[in-house]
Amino acid sequence: MNPGRSIILNRIREALRNNPAPRPHTSHSQADAAAETHGHAQREWLPKVGATLPEQIDLFAKISEGLKTEFHRVPTIDAAHNLLKQLAAAEGWKKIASHSHHDTDSLIQGIDLPVVRTEKGYGIDELESCDAGVTGCEVLVAQTGGVMVSVESAGGRALSVLPPHHVVIARASQMVPDLTAAFEHVKKRYGKNLPSFMSFITGPSRTGDIERILVLGAHGPKRLTVLLID
């Protein structure tokens, strides 16, 4: 064990010993009680989300528009499959990447393209040369227009970020109101053994580093398509 550990811990304890800091100036006395009811208390302050599924889907759709996420509601997996084929034709895909998962399997079944599957490992260059990455997700987050992915639900860390077009398939039952609900979902699903990677993807990759002008597709996908099966 490196000596830095005890050095830093000692410094911290020395700094805090009998040396209380003034409490933050807060106008809301409720904030004091927040520590106990955490997570749910935040919902009072954060952007409002409707309680029903249709409201949440509408909010997700509205925010997606601003984010330039291409959000499509489709009635069935077959309809989603047709949409995917249209995308493949329009963009001239030559190779795609995906991972084994109930909905992704149905989505890409019969597509006339080579498919790189990531779940058992893959070559980086091979994945890099794919035109699209097709993944599932943990949940969709209505409040932020976000897609929560993880190792488990999106075929690892890179599949959802390396190919230039990321296509996500989700069911209406996967819509959650907010980030807190998303965290509750993964805790419930994985218990203490959370995936080593989880990400909220909120729109296609972007940058404003040149004159603060928005450009999509900085290093990650230029396009993000979310297919929601109602």
Binding site: K120, G121, Y122, T144, G146, G156, P195, I201, T202, R206
Partner: peptide, 24 residues
């Protein structure tokens, strides 16, 4: 920070690649 609803990627990592995971 940037006047966004959410930044594009907010990613949580706990550890290197775990057994059974494909990459990382």
């Amino acid at each position: 920070g940037a006047g966004q609803t959410m930044t594009c990627y907010n990613t949580m990592y706990s550890g290197p690649r775990q057994p059974g995971e494909p990459d990382g």
